[in-house]
Design a protein around this nucleic acid. Sequence first.
DNA 1: CATGAATGAGGCTTCATTCAT
DNA 2: GATGAATGAAGCCTCATTCAT
Lengths: 204, 204, 204, 204
Amino acid sequence: MTLLSDQRQAKKQRIIKAAAEVMARKGYAGTVMADIAAAADIGKGTLYEYFDSKEALFFAVFRWFSQATGAEARVSVSALGRSAGERLRLLNDTIMGAWIELKDIYALTMEFWSASASAQMRNRFKEVFRESYREFRAVVSALLRDGIERGEFRPDLKAESIAAALVGTWDALLLQAWFDDRFDPVETSREFLDALFEGIRAAG
Amino acid sequence: MTLLSDQRQAKKQRIIKAAAEVMARKGYAGTVMADIAAAADIGKGTLYEYFDSKEALFFAVFRWFSQATGAEARVSVSALGRSAGERLRLLNDTIMGAWIELKDIYALTMEFWSASASAQMRNRFKEVFRESYREFRAVVSALLRDGIERGEFRPDLKAESIAAALVGTWDALLLQAWFDDRFDPVETSREFLDALFEGIRAAG
Amino acid sequence: MTLLSDQRQAKKQRIIKAAAEVMARKGYAGTVMADIAAAADIGKGTLYEYFDSKEALFFAVFRWFSQATGAEARVSVSALGRSAGERLRLLNDTIMGAWIELKDIYALTMEFWSASASAQMRNRFKEVFRESYREFRAVVSALLRDGIERGEFRPDLKAESIAAALVGTWDALLLQAWFDDRFDPVETSREFLDALFEGIRAAG
Amino acid sequence: MTLLSDQRQAKKQRIIKAAAEVMARKGYAGTVMADIAAAADIGKGTLYEYFDSKEALFFAVFRWFSQATGAEARVSVSALGRSAGERLRLLNDTIMGAWIELKDIYALTMEFWSASASAQMRNRFKEVFRESYREFRAVVSALLRDGIERGEFRPDLKAESIAAALVGTWDALLLQAWFDDRFDPVETSREFLDALFEGIRAAG
DNA sequence: CATGAATGAGGCTTCATTCAT
DNA sequence: GATGAATGAAGCCTCATTCAT
């Protein structure tokens, strides 16, 4: 039973990854179940042994992708014995590292956003996104407040807002990189962090 | 008698706006041509007198939306007699103002992103996005360099990177607002700008 | 009134010829009313001032085409002062001459046949064809019987059958020429007539 | 388990025959895929498991029909131990026999001709027709030359032209029979063959 | 009379899902 | 449990015809 369950889980994962690959390439609407079955090297009908519907499979892909990109991030935030500033830079590097690794299925992100906007799937996706963003902002926000307490950051900092902006910037730099091969989000994000630390106003 | 070009253009605009409204609500894939026709209060076939295909109409919506959101921004950047800092804040307010106005069709943005990711339409959309972002970054970058020259901003600023991050932040704050009604991008963006100006590091 | 009627008739003819040209090129089903209007250099709606429907226009084309190809044939059959054999050869040449002239709209013939086969238009077309063939066979048959009476042809000739075969042969040679540019129906028909006159059996 | 190729072929044949029947009755343009599916007693979508498009199905019908009508003809031509004249008469009877058998789908022929004339499908159909006619003429021509060598037929015979005319006559007699129920192509063709053998010119 | 913008019925085709094997 | 043949709902698009100008 456990063994069976393990095998079943493994196959489920294989399907999810196959689906992720195909959907990243063709988009959710442009992907047909037959493509996914072929990519997973199983029969079309078998998909339905593991997922109730195309939408359910897509949602599973979403959760897998979120997990994959979020897991490491959480680790880097809680790195022990580091200053808040160091952990912030570490977080930045971790995110960029994850992007490099998942570059060729990055397009999924846009599919997820789109799913959260279209009436049919909106609810499920939108809620997950909202919670993810809230959580992510909270984590970064906590990190910033920690920095304030440690005396690293200015005490009058609006931690919430800066956290939101930072979270957003990571998203958006990767988005711009998607559109433009010549755009380098890694370097850009580092330079931006520097500026944010020091401020852009001329000293004076 | 040929329909006056003006009338034709006006009707075309009406269709585009109707399509924008429906697509924002149902998503591109979830929208059927009949819905758009009904929303524009015309016959289904009439749509094809003005647009070759669903995709062509979608692309027209895209261009209209880009125009609508980009036009004012350009104006505020070139506001005369203002310091670079003021113009940056003005730009921020303009963008947030446009968002408030277009809030209920904001979801279109995600549809556009998705379109740029799905194989079928990728090329057209992706290219426009790339150019738009390049242009937008260039504008903000120029504004920052202007600030450096005026002595407002630190001379060692990486204008390119900060511009990219700013452009992205605006995108991403609105995205977070889409997911979360309780999230206020207007206040957040202002506070973030403040922090960016002064830096987050404790003076020391 | 007469003048108007004349102008009207002329325009009607122009439309018919335009329709013939387009339909020969694109086939009946492949032709759209807009094409015909454009070819006749008139508005789409004007077509309906002259013909009740696409089908009615097609039928008018049919009648015009039948007329055009049949008229000369009748003349040559009744050429005075010629032997039956001469008139038969003359008829052959007339038909081939008409074909050369109408070569580029010959494809219409196949459209007419097809129309007579498809349920919708069958009745009108089929009946006209039946009568045309009956008439044509009767004419040729009479010519053959005339030849018998004059002592030119064998008295035991089955005039009806030979007439039918001849009429058919003309049709079919042109058909083969339609399919094959290298096929010359003019020479072929002459040589065939010779053989028919003399018989193919070796003289014994 | 993959459906056995045999079963698949059988079903494909069933669809082709159903399509032939419907198309003969309603014409190509007048036939809707739903009709064919109903006639074949399968779902509409199933058609597309076997044929890529309506046009592809039509072409398959064409090939099937050509095969069906051409196969026996070839046999009779090569009948051993017969004189050329006998084989020619046998060929004639075979063709007429095939017609009697396929009478109710004879109308397909006209649809095929029409298809070869209309721009969209022209190329595929026209080419097949050209080759079929060339082949058929070659076969009959060879038979005639064989007759010449055997001393049955006049040595100065233009075998090519007579073959073309004969091939055409068979086509055209059936065409006339299509238009006219009272027309008997069987008897007509026999009497015509007699005349062709003996010639129509009065002896002497 | 002439026009061409507007229309909506109708057809081809796709594809998620089912189910018999 | 796995499969893929079968299905039919649903959508995009075409185009003959109408009618207000």
